[in-house]
Design a protein around this nucleic acid. Structure first.
Length: 207
DNA sequence: CCTCCGATGTGCT
DNA sequence: GCACATCGGAGGC
């Protein structure tokens, strides 16, 4: 019981990896670049909300080497993740939102005529703005081709906020979503309709 | 083969 | 707040 509590409290390494991706710049297709403002951490077999919770052909790439792109489709949208763990662990970071820095025309051609701060808000919209599709699965984001991630120095901890992950039914209260505090490109929180009860959704400053 | 179901986005009440 | 489009993955039979 005590070990269970400790396991719940202890933060897996993918959470630090997620925070480290805030501020990184993703270079996508057709000259679109985005500064990452919102991410979510997904761990391996210990995280019921993660695709890696069940090891299948789809999630196998999460168990592969780090720095590879894991792309999946949901409800007709693409979502992009970066595998952050050593081979065999199965954790990855979902890129949930970004500020478009360059390639606004190409991004808008894919996303439609929306104001800048909405171009890359939400994981499906961000992937769409960047032109990321299933064809980018497995890309080494250190080298490309197609998609490259340039990491930045860590953001000051006091500029990062954490909260529960968006739209997950299982493990709905783990505060493994991280975003740049107050950034207009960050997506809204939506709790899964069938997620378990929660007295007060955890939200805290990183320190 | 078939059914169920989202790590979503959008629009409407 | 709620409905629903939409489609690949996962699992049951």
């Amino acid at each position: 019981m005590e070990s269970l509590v400790l396991a719940m409290v202890e933060e897996p390494s993918v959470c630090a990896a997620a925070r480290a991706l805030l501020g990184a710049v993703v270079f996508g297709h057709d000259g679109v670049a985005a500064r990452i403002t919102e991410v979510e951490a997904y761990d391996g077999p210990d995280d019921p909300a993660s695709h890696a919770y069940t090891r299948t052909p789809r999630s196998e790439i999460m168990y592969g080497p780090p720095e590879r792109l894991y792309v999946y489709r949901i409800h007709g949208h693409h979502c992009a993740n970066v595998v952050t763990s050593a081979e065999g662990r199965g954790s990855a970071v979902l890129l949930r939102a970004g500020e478009i820095l360059d390639g606004h025309d190409a991004a808008r051609a894919r996303r439609g005529d929306v104001v800048d701060h909405l171009l890359g808000r939400g994981p499906g919209n961000l992937a769409k703005a960047l032109g990321i599709t299933m064809a980018d699965r497995g890309t080494d984001v250190r080298t490309g081709p197609g998609v490259v991630v340039r990491r930045s120095p860590p953001l000051p901890a006091e500029t990062i906020t954490a909260g529960p992950r968006v739209g997950v039914r299982l493990a709905a209260d783990r505060p493994w979503r991280y975003w740049v505090s107050g950034d207009p490109t960050v997506s809204a929180y939506r709790r899964h309709a069938r997620a378990g009860e929660s007295t007060s959704p955890p939200r805290r400053r990183i320190q």
